[in-house]
Simulated assay, not measured.
Amino acid sequence: MSGPVTGPVSPDLVGFEPVCELTAIAPETGVAALVHGVGVAVFRTHADEVFALGNVDPFSGASVLSRGIVGTRGEVPVVSSPMYKQAFDLRTGRCLDDVSAAVDSYDVAVVAGSVLVGPVRVPAPLDDLVDDLVDDLAREAG
């Protein structure tokens, strides 16, 4: 399945591209897709949540994140790079092991069993991310 969505489209889904059927992504795994000419990794969690991040590992430069290990760190859904094992928050793309690193995060929708990937999300300000990380660490410790 590729190309733009055809037929009547909700205004909220303009710019989204179909990637695959949800059933094509096993829980706790990812798949690679080309969306608007960019390599994207699409993940399905054990809880059936679907996320999309840029597929290039910023530490190695390799397009491998779709083959990473999907899980959680505390309550944060993550993918760990198969190269050097850094964990990336599936919700934001931020690296949990190095706050200076991140990958793009994309809007995702599941419509009638099809996974659609939309535009890149605008990153949250770094101060908000640091506050979130501190809160996550405090929950893990306490």
Rank of each mutant, 00 (worst) to 15 (best):
P4K: 14
P4M: 12
T6W: 07
G15N: 02
E17H: 10
P18S: 06
V19H: 03
E21M: 14
L22A: 10
T23W: 14
T23M: 13
A26H: 12
E28K: 14
A32F: 12
A32G: 15
V35K: 06
V35P: 00
G37S: 06
A41K: 03
A41Q: 04
F43Y: 15
F43Q: 07
H46W: 13
H46S: 15
A47F: 12
A47Q: 13
E49V: 07
A52Q: 04
D57S: 01
F59N: 08
G61P: 05
S63T: 07
S66A: 11
S66F: 08
R67N: 07
V70C: 01
V70Y: 01
V70D: 03
G71T: 03
T72L: 10
T72C: 10
R73C: 11
V78M: 07
V79P: 09
K85E: 13
K85P: 01
F88T: 01
D89L: 00
R91T: 13
R91K: 13
G93Q: 01
R94D: 11
C95I: 05
D97T: 08
D98N: 13
V103W: 03
Y106W: 11
A109K: 05
A109R: 12
V110S: 08
A112F: 06
L116E: 04
V117F: 03
G118Q: 06
P119E: 12
P119H: 10
V120L: 09
P123S: 02
P125V: 05
D127S: 13
D128H: 11
D128C: 09
L133Y: 07
V134M: 06
V134G: 06
D136H: 13
L137W: 12
A138C: 14
G142W: 10
